[in-house]
Simulated assay, not measured.
Amino acid sequence: MKTKVYVNNEKFFAGMTLKDDTKLEDNNMALHSCSNVENILENRKRLAHFLNCSLENFVCANQTHSANFHRVTLDDKGRGSNLSNTAIPNTDALYTYEPNLLLCSFTADCVPVTFYNKVNGLVGVIHSGWQGTVKEITSKVFDHLIKKEQCNPNDFHVQIGAALGQEKFEVDEDVFLKFKDLGYADDFINYNDQTNKYHIDNQLTVKMQCELAGIPAGQITIDPTCTYLSPDGFSYREDKSSGRHLSFIMRKGN
């Protein structure tokens, strides 16, 4: 299974599937962007086998570039796993305390964030495209977890997965101004006076959001892979009919 494993220890399993031209639809994992649903289900079943769980353990959301998040319970088990219309609606971040539920996030250039709390066992995923970043979805999720779920920010470990790199994330002034208005992203923006375009590092902006929430910088890891430049990457910017990576995290249970 062509997968980048970020964490695999006695308590947590987290990673990201990769593009693989030897598999059905290049190992696309998204039901909402595919040629044949059965191909995607076959890919997901192979992933489930690799992770030693079943497809029924997957929990997926219908991502809308929102700043909405959802606490996953056992009642959500299997939502969106084999049908798009059962996914959790209008949601771009999931978290849970429950073991053996595979939280899923789908990306093709957007920033995927997986995280776990080493003390209380909470795990989560965040989908942060540029729209989610300027809506500060990551900040809002961690603010909620710290204030409402009583999590200690020092207990989190965060993985920022492969995404569109700064070189290829080229935007006009309207998007630049949204990032500038955040007040903390200036260091992650370059201007190209040849093209009159701005280049933004979305991953570093998301990392800063984690740090501002109180998570120690040393507990945040960034995958430097650019989904546009890497042959292992799905890139919507390169191909509007692109497939999707699946970023996942699960707390292992007995």
Rank of each mutant, 00 (worst) to 15 (best):
23 K>S: 12
50 F>T: 12
74 L>I: 09
120 N>M: 13
17 T>E: 02
8 N>L: 07
55 L>N: 08
139 S>Y: 10
29 M>A: 02
112 P>T: 01
42 E>W: 15
246 L>C: 03
203 Q>E: 07
183 G>M: 01
213 A>V: 05
232 D>N: 04
179 F>N: 05
133 T>F: 02
15 G>Y: 14
42 E>T: 14
30 A>M: 10
237 R>L: 05
151 C>K: 15
104 C>D: 13
41 L>G: 02
166 Q>K: 00
86 T>C: 07
247 S>M: 10
95 Y>C: 10
61 A>F: 02
226 C>A: 10
20 D>A: 08
168 K>F: 11
211 E>C: 12
210 C>L: 00
172 D>N: 14
186 D>Y: 12
92 D>A: 05
24 L>S: 11
214 G>A: 12
187 D>Y: 14
98 E>M: 06
89 P>G: 06
75 D>Y: 14
227 T>G: 03
232 D>F: 07
186 D>T: 13
191 Y>G: 01
106 F>V: 15
197 K>Y: 14
43 N>H: 01
233 G>H: 11
187 D>F: 11
243 G>Q: 05
227 T>W: 05
19 K>G: 05
174 D>L: 13
155 D>G: 00
140 K>H: 15
234 F>P: 03
110 C>Q: 08
177 L>H: 10
187 D>R: 10
19 K>E: 09
161 G>Q: 09
150 Q>H: 07
248 F>M: 03
97 Y>N: 09
145 L>F: 06
193 D>F: 07
140 K>M: 02
231 P>T: 07
188 F>K: 02
88 I>T: 04
132 G>P: 00
115 F>M: 08
171 V>D: 00
22 T>C: 06
33 S>P: 15
14 A>N: 11
99 P>T: 04
79 R>S: 08
44 R>W: 00
159 Q>S: 10
157 H>V: 12
104 C>F: 09
34 C>P: 10
239 D>L: 15
146 I>L: 03
54 S>H: 08
144 H>Q: 06
109 D>N: 14
114 T>M: 13
185 A>H: 07
124 G>R: 01
37 V>E: 12
39 N>F: 07
95 Y>W: 12
250 M>S: 11
1 M>I: 14
195 T>M: 14
83 L>D: 13
197 K>Q: 07
166 Q>D: 03
232 D>L: 13
204 L>T: 14
